[in-house]
């Protein structure tokens, strides 16, 4: 049985890669349109990045440098696991530094550092259909995309406004790509939506369980849906990152104790480390460094 268990470079067989590669080229040619593909069973569960992994495995070559993030961080367990998978099956060079990576596979975040030409961002997507929660049927949503009939989405957003005074969608906030297709940006916080617009990098989206691949080529219009009287707004944070002092970045809330103590730190761990290496310091940095030493003393 042992001699049976050999795998191709990057795990997938060549026929599967060709099928996915063809889907990627069509996805690039029709920005924001979800290309159906014959997603394969992967050695990690559906919902854990099988779409992203299949896209990465199909584009990856021996000269690539791969970065994998989950929630913006390189050290979250699933990011570690996917990175280790590609090290094992493709022997690929890996990095945590955004600027060094040629391919970045991500779940739920876009790095803070603006991406450059030559970089490809691969998103893991759970539910690729932006209209799915308004209309569960694929046969119906497909028609709506075909006819460019997106009224339902506007109605939903407007209902939010009439109920709450503002749009209550905070992540997976729908966008319109190149004035044609309404697209789900994956469950990134809407804070990241503006980064997709006219990005220099190629953005590929893989949904394994739902068997869809879609793309946003570089320099492509990506506009968050909104209304004239209620323009799209991103989240803002009251304080800068407690570790590196960065402003205008997305922050995670870290619970410090059971008495309501909180600190806010960069969700993008590489960005935060890089700033600290360059001498930036936030309000909690000195104290955490001090505290970290304590157990040894």
């Amino acid at each position: 049985m042992n001699d049976l268990a050999t795998y191709n470079f990057a795990y997938l067989d060549e026929q599967t890669k060709r099928m996915i590669r063809r889907a990627i080229l069509k996805a690039i040619a029709i920005p924001g349109y979800q290309v159906p593909f014959a997603s394969r069973e992967m050695p990690m569960p559906y919902g854990w990045g099988t779409g992203g992994v299949q896209v990465t495995a199909s584009i990856l070559g021996p000269d690539d440098v791969l970065k994998v993030i989950d929630q913006g961080a390189d050290d979250t367990t699933n990011a570690v696991s996917i990175r280790a998978f590609f090290q094992k099956v493709a022997n690929v060079a890996v990095t945590t530094k955004t600027v060094e990576a040629t391919i970045i596979q991500t779940r739920h975040r876009i790095p803070e550092e603006p991406l450059k030409e030559g970089q490809t961002l691969v998103y893991q997507v759970p539910i690729p259909e932006p209209l799915r929660f308004l209309e569960p049927r694929e046969t119906e949503t497909r028609k709506m995309h075909a006819l460019e009939e997106y009224g339902l989405m506007h109605v939903k957003l407007y209902e939010d406004i009439s109920r709450n005074g503002h749009i209550a969608t905070t992540y997976a906030y729908p966008v319109k790509v190149e004035g044609r297709y309404v697209m789900d940006p994956s469950p990134t916080p809407k804070f990241d939506n503006p980064k997709m617009h006219m990005s220099e990098a190629l953005q590929l989206f893989g949904a394994g369980r739902e068997k869809r691949i879609y793309a946003v080529p570089p320099f492509t219009e990506v506009v968050s849906l909104d209304f004239e009287d209620h323009p799209f707004e991103i989240q803002t944070f009251e304080k800068p990152c407690a570790l590196c002092g960065a402003e205008n970045v997305y922050l995670d809330e870290v619970v410090l104790d059971d008495r309501g103590g909180r600190m806010f730190v960069c969700s993008d761990t590489d960005h935060c480390e890089d700033r600290r290496a360059h001498g930036h310091a936030g309000s909690m940095l000195a104290s955490t460094q001090h505290q970290r030493k304590e157990p040894a003393e």
Binding site: T77, T170, P189, R209, Y250, L251
Partner: peptide, 16 residues
């Protein structure tokens, strides 16, 4: 897979 993926970190979305 999809049911169990809920145990993966979602703190970025939850923060929002």
């Amino acid at each position: 897979g999809f049911v169990e993926h809920l145990k993966l970190p979602h703190y970025v979305d939850f923060q929002a």
